[in-house]
Each structure stands twice: as structure tokens, then as C-alpha cells.
Simulated assay, not measured.
Amino acid sequence: MKLILRWLASAAAVGLAVYLLPGLDYDGRIETLFVVALVLGLVNAIVRPMVKMMACGIIVLTLGLALLVINAVMLYLTTFIAGHLGYGFHIDSFVDAIIGSVVISLATWLLSMFINDDDKRRR
């Protein structure tokens, strides 16, 4: 149940980013937001750790600012995959991807604070 709630929170965060940023656009279907949230979660779980491991020197050298670029690239990869699956999600520029990834991260973090975590209550 918690996984579904986190997925819904991620879809809401993607919807918020599309609403707030004129450089992010989607085809208007609600299922597109759910698919983009699912693809983004899979990309962040599978691809992002490998990219971070390969770029750890650059991340340290830039004091973590390279993570903004990595997050934007993961959002671009999500756009590419969602487009090939037949869902219209589009990012206009790289700056929009950076700002969009920050908005999605912050909104997901904020919404996940309201999801009840049973493990924390047991301790």
C-alpha cells in the first residue's frame, strides 16, 4: 500500500512541475503522469546509481552541484522512454529539466512526509 501511495505522490509531483513550469508539457492524459512517475522511479532506481558511481569524482569536485545535472539527465531519459511508450511528456530546455527535477524532488519529498511509515513507529 505504501508503494502505491508513493507512486501517487510522485505522479502528483510530476503534475505540479508541469503546472508550474511552462517548459514542461504533457499530452493532457492523467495516465501519462502515472507512467512518467513510474518510469522516473525506475530510472532513478536502476540508472541513477550507476551514473552517480561513475561520476563520483565530478560530484565531489563540484561540491554536489553535478547532482543537479544528473537529475536533469534522468528526467530527460524519462522523457525519452515515455515518448517511446506512447506517452507525450516533453521538456523544452536543459534549464527546464534542472528546475523540473528540483520541483519534482521537493514535491515528492514533501508529499512523502504525509505517508505513514510503519517502520518508524515501531522503534
Rank of each mutant, 00 (worst) to 15 (best):
L40V: 05
L40N: 07
L40S: 09
L40E: 07
G41P: 07
G41N: 11
G41F: 08
L42K: 05
L42E: 05
L42F: 09
L42V: 12
L42P: 08
N44T: 11
N44A: 10
N44W: 10
A45M: 13
I46Y: 03
I46M: 02
I46C: 00
I46V: 11
I46K: 03
I46R: 00
V47P: 01
V47S: 01
V47H: 03
V47I: 12
V47W: 08
R48V: 09
R48F: 00
R48L: 03
P49H: 04
P49A: 12
P49N: 08
P49M: 05
P49Y: 03
M50C: 09
M50P: 00
V51C: 03
V51M: 03
V51Y: 01
V51G: 04
K52M: 14
M53W: 10
M53Q: 09
M53I: 08
M53P: 00
M53C: 06
M54S: 11
M54R: 08
A55N: 06
A55M: 11
A55Y: 08
A55W: 09
A55F: 13
C56T: 15
C56M: 14
C56E: 11
C56K: 15
G57R: 06
I58M: 15
I58W: 15
I58T: 15
I58K: 15
I58R: 14
I59V: 14
V60I: 15
V60A: 12
V60C: 10
V60E: 04
L61M: 14
L61Y: 08
L61I: 12
T62Q: 12
T62V: 11
T62R: 14
T62P: 14
L63W: 00
L63R: 10
L63D: 06
L63S: 13
G64P: 00
G64V: 07
G64E: 01
L65T: 07
L65D: 08
L65R: 10
L65F: 14
A66Y: 15
A66N: 04
A66H: 14
A66I: 09
A66V: 13
L67E: 03
L68H: 12
L68W: 15
L68G: 12
V69N: 04
V69P: 04
V69W: 13
I70L: 06
I70D: 03
I70S: 02
I70Y: 05
N71L: 12
N71M: 11
N71G: 11
A72F: 09
A72M: 06
A72C: 02
V73I: 14
V73Y: 13
V73S: 11
V73K: 05
V73P: 04
V73D: 08
M74N: 13
M74P: 13
M74K: 09
M74C: 15
M74T: 13
L75H: 08
L75Y: 11
L75N: 04
L75V: 01
Y76T: 01
Y76G: 00
Y76S: 01
Y76Q: 07
Y76E: 06
L77Q: 02
L77M: 07
